[in-house]
């Protein structure tokens, strides 16, 4: 179980706030964190992966509160993916894998190569650098690396925005196999209702720095309050595409 306990955070005095969030994510299940842009999803996930320090509250993994002492173990057990990536531009893609995989004791190079094959990422990793890949190729590389680490939990911040639907389906299926096969827990954020896939077990709806609703997918999707949220988000998308 990966939990957030009494978590609060704020940017500046009048700035954005995360307000007293308590939520538990079970291993072996896929949770979609759904909310409009600016709802606080990235902040919450950054707090969860200890990229930000909260004002109050704690991250707890399997009953153990995460602090300086167990932070390294925590980062081995939990993987984090967003569209920035962690690659050094001075190194090729292969050099990055060789260098950074040494940080993760369970990293399986063969599995990493298998994933790249499955995702059909065919480019010369000995030559190319991360910035030379397309957005879709970058995400294939990052997710292949994250899965080959065999983490207990995978946190993903808007991983599929701007990806072509076929790439998205391939990546989702690979992630789902880890969820069903070895009980990996997943927390994925998105601002698109369409991204709530069939493999989603739980949905958490975030609004103005708070978790508005959390439950299994069927319950949340049929909730009356969600229908209005859905309409709001859909109309937002239309406005975005008109711009």
């Amino acid at each position: 179980m990966l939990s957030i306990k009494n978590m609060s955070y704020s940017y500046g005095k009048k700035g954005f706030k995360i307000q007293d969030i308590n939520i538990d994510f079970e291993g072996g299940y896929f949770t979609t964190l759904l909310g409009k842009n600016g709802a606080g999803k990235t902040t919450l996930l950054s707090l969860m992966y200890k990229l930000l320090l909260p004002k109050t509250g704690a991250v707890v993994l399997n009953g153990e509160e995460i602090g300086m002492k167990n932070l390294c173990d925590f980062k081995r057990d939990v993987a984090y993916v967003d569209d920035n990536g962690w690659c050094r531009e001075s190194m090729t893609l292969n050099e990055n894998v060789d260098f950074f995989s040494s940080l993760y004791d369970k990293f399986d190079k063969k599995e990493f190569d298998d994933y790249l094959n499955t995702f059909e990422l065919d480019c010369d990793l000995n030559e190319k650098h991360f910035s030379e890949l397309s957005k879709g190729e970058q995400m294939k590389y990052l997710i292949a690396f994250a899965l080959a680490r065999k983490p207990k939990y995978l946190i993903m911040d808007e991983p599929f925005t701007n990806l072509d639907p076929i790439v998205k389906t391939d990546l989702i299926e690979a992630i789902h196999r880890e969820v069903t096969g070895r009980n990996m827990g997943v927390i994925m954020s998105t601002h698109l209702v369409e991204d709530v896939s069939d493999i989603t077990d739980y949905i958490a709806i975030m609004e103005e720095g708070k978790i508005k609703l959390f439950g299994d997918r069927d319950t949340v999707m049929t909730d009356k309050n969600v229908m209005s949220l859905r309409e709001l988000m859909v109309s937002d998308e239309i406005v975005d595409s008109v711009k």
Partner: peptide, 17 residues
Amino acid sequence: IRSLAADLKISVITTKR
């Protein structure tokens, strides 16, 4: 439950239900 969910590409909770 988990292998059926994997085969059908649907959520574990749906299969469990």
